[in-house]
Amino acid sequence: MNAAQPASAEMNTFTIKPQKGLASLNLRDLWLFRELIYFLTWRDIKVRYKQTLLGAGWAILQPVLQMLVFNVLFGDLAGLSTGGVPRPIFTYAALLPWNLFSTAISDAGRSLVTSRNMITKVYFPRLIVPLSSILSGVVDFAIAFVILIGMMIYYGIAPTSAIWLLPLYLLLGLTTALGVGLWLAALNVHYRDVRYLIPFLTQFWMLASPIAYLAKEVFDRLPEGWGWLYALNPMVGVIEGFRNVLLGSEIYSGEVIWISVLVAVVLLVSGLFYFRSMERTFADTV
């Protein structure tokens, strides 16, 4: 009967006592429960489009419709420059990382409250909940990415030699999303205001990100030496980077990308510690 027991490493004694001060990250438990990350991600993916007519088609339809609206609004009406890149693909390439990010923060932000019944019944590292809700969004991203490849072929645009940077930009986006997601998720446990805050946050954040316009438009309007201000939004670097390595569109964020990276790391680390220190009360207050 004991054959099915997990490795003896788990047989050791653990002490349950009130935690004081800054919590440790307890990555060991996260590792022990790694399969749960996989299962929860897999569950979210599986049920995402259950009982919908279009199924995974929504992953394509959403960015495509957004792209059309953006074209009319910002192209035909506002006439913003795209730096020579065809507007549909200019917008679409930006919408991909943006949608990944915005779905991630709103899913992660609500994740703890929606898995309330698990949190109040069994122990597992709570970090898994927002983490897996973010990971499951990557599938939508991958599906929508296929359309982008199709568009690139149609417009005859080849990716630049810097394409190897793409995963790094993606990572930057996910890091930011996880950082913000952790803050929102933990706050949402105590203050359900977060639920109402999230739509505004994503809306304003979207306008503050260079999706329909070039980051240049903003950088040019900022006084000399104030470019870092715009780069505080890590999504500027992510979106610019995406367009740069995929479409060869000129990158304006340049050096200030490091500010984006720094902000993302600060968000993630502070989010992790805040989340961990709040974790002890999740089951009581959620």
Binding site: T13, I16, K17, P18, K121, V122, Y123, A283
Partner: peptide, 27 residues
Amino acid sequence: LSRVTEPTEGYAEVTGRVGSLLEVGTG
């Protein structure tokens, strides 16, 4: 004891994996 929530005071030492059936069908 199943680590769902933290105590306010005191401590507990638990040796071994704890399986809890606080409510079936969780998840």
